[in-house]
Design a protein around this nucleic acid. Structure first.
Lengths: 337, 337
DNA sequence: CTGTTAGCGCATTCAT
DNA sequence: ATGAATGCGCTAACAG
């Protein structure tokens, strides 16, 4: 299928010089005569020469590639994180290999293997909702390949992490609902396997407590982030004898779906029920009513995670640090509350 | 940084056998004693052995990797195409390398080089809005690496392409507006550099013509798909002495932004102005009013493009085909019209 | 069934 | 300033 690809040897032969000289000319080594370099560069251009990453990856300890493992990218959140990460990777001369796992643990494991096979110099990870065994990620640590978690982090592993003020954001959101006179505030939370669910739930709980509102277990539901299931839980809330007057959702996609279902049921937002999300995805201000939500700096998260990873790559294993960077959040009040 | 990675040689040494035997055991070659294979597999697992893609990429003609070049992935369209493509790539045992160009021609060229360096076996491409020189893509053809275009295709290159019924979809959308009694239908089109703009515009023009409506050049605007600029053009339409009573937009993100701006201006949708989009992105039914749009099979586009590419990879250059596959579209009528 | 050898494309010693 | 030789990890051809 593939024709012969142009190699440094082709250039060397054509010019009647050695491979080494060509290599030097191409990589910008100082010890090459200016005229030789010029000839090599010219011919390389004409022959559409392109360095072969595989031979370089094989030679060098560094592949100059970092990998990013995300659970999905149908919603805008992860693509935006990726854009941030890619920005920094590129600046540092790294390529970014992206893999999405479709929220499947098995796919995540397979993707992790691919990353290993590609000899990534480091790995950015946000886990699937199913992941609760981390062996496939711990391998990286053992092999001396740094990992940085973002968003959906693994508590069990001592590595750098980037999260946002989940607790504070959730607290602010719920306090806001209380300030608006809401008494029965429900929480549609994420999977118990994700610590992000716990942090946001804690903020919710503490805001209630602080305002002397008794948390009601009937009003707290964990779900697996599979959007079609939102309907089940929202309908459950709506048919409760003592219906909630507000729902705080784990994230924006969930909140948007919640709004859709409430509207379908004929109830009014925010008059009958207020809805608040978390993230400030770009859709949030487009829907009707516009969503009150906790803004998080999404591409900043990608940039920060990449920065931490690149820094870690420069260090030897013994020097590895494990900071947890917490980015700011900010409540954005719109008409859904 | 990196510790020593486990290689087949490590396994061979440990077991007192040769590298070749280990290699055979690992790759499932038939000529290996069952007990030997078992021992190798066991040890490989214990040592967390992982094949090195670079050495394989170097050895084989095939890298078993395909690349995908997209102009952006902040909106849901391209991620969804990628998911479709990845599905098929994975089934066929191929890895997918994703690169996004942020609508920048220069970045696209750089990304194309990366793909070349990674020795992709084939390339899926949807161009940036800026791309009108195709040298960086033609190189692939010359090197015998097949390309398949999707969505934003290059007319100049004779390669397989996947598009949708742009003309028919646009025609149906405009006919629908006319059926609803609209007389002055504006068209917010994409860049003239993209043939997709022309195809959709033709559908618009012909629908008008068929209904004996004189096309009005004041009502046709081309823009570069940079969302912030939508405001300029929509405001231009709104302040026209003879204001349009409908706007047909090149795609959904544009239509959604258009709706936002019209609402901001205080006009009612669809009473004062109807808006129709193209794509049926998942946001389209969430906004207020829900968007009337032309549905296109998004992940199907990714799957089809990948299928065409994989087929092409199996063929020698002389056997290459260049079919243009046209996927169905369907008008979805909602409340914005 | 298994071992030996060669070589993929390149950067990097070590010579000259 | 340049060339020759080496090896990264692996598979395939050849030899037993």
């Amino acid at each position: 299928m593939k024709n012969h690809q142009t190699t440094i040897f082709d250039i060397a032969r054509e010019l009647g010089i050695s491979k080494s000289t060509v290599s030097r000319a191409l990589t910008g080594h100082p010890n090459v005569h200016a005229s030789t370099r010029e000839k090599v560069l010219k011919l390389a251009g004409d022959l559409e020469y392109q360095r072969n990453m595989y031979s370089i990856g094989l030679m060098k300890k560094r592949s100059h590639t970092i990998g990013i493992l995300v659970p999905e990218f149908t919603r805008s959140f992860f693509p935006q994180v990726i854009i941030g990460a890619q920005e920094r990777a590129k600046e540092a001369g790294y390529n970014l290999i992206i893999a999405q796992s479709d929220e499947s643990y098995e796919t995540e494991v397979a993707n992790a293997k691919v990353m290993l096979a590609y000899q990534v110099d480091g790995l950015l990870v946000s886990m699937t909702r199913e992941t609760n065994n981390f062996d496939h990620l711990k391998i990286f640590q053992r092999k001396g390949i740094p990992i940085v978690f973002f968003n959906r982090v693994c508590d069990e592993m001592i590595v750098p992490k980037v999260i946002v003020e989940d607790y504070e954001g959730a607290y602010a959101a719920v306090q806001h609902l209380i300030d608006r006179g809401r008494k029965r505030i429900a929480h549609l939370s994420g999977p118990e396997s994700l610590s992000i669910s716990h942090r946001r739930k804690s903020g919710y709980m503490d805001a209630l407590k602080k305002n002397n509102i008794q948390a009601d277990n009937d009003l707290i539901v964990h779900y697996d982030l599979s959007l079609p299931k939102v309907k089940i839980y929202v309908n459950y809330f709506l048919t409760l004898p003592d219906r909630p007057d507000a729902i705080f959702c784990i994230n924006d996609p969930t909140a948007i779906e919640t709004i859709r279902i409430i509207k379908e049921s004929g109830l009014r937002i925010p008059e009958d029920i207020a809805v608040v999300g978390f993230s400030n995805d770009y859709v949030s201000h487009l829907i009707e009513p516009p969503l009150t939500t906790v803004e998080q700096p999404i591409s900043e998260m990608g940039r920060t995670a990449a920065d931490l990873l690149l820094k870690q790559i420069e260090l030897s294993v013994e020097q590895w640090k494990a900071p947890t960077v917490v980015l700011k959040t900010k409540l954005i009040v719109r008409n859904s509350s």
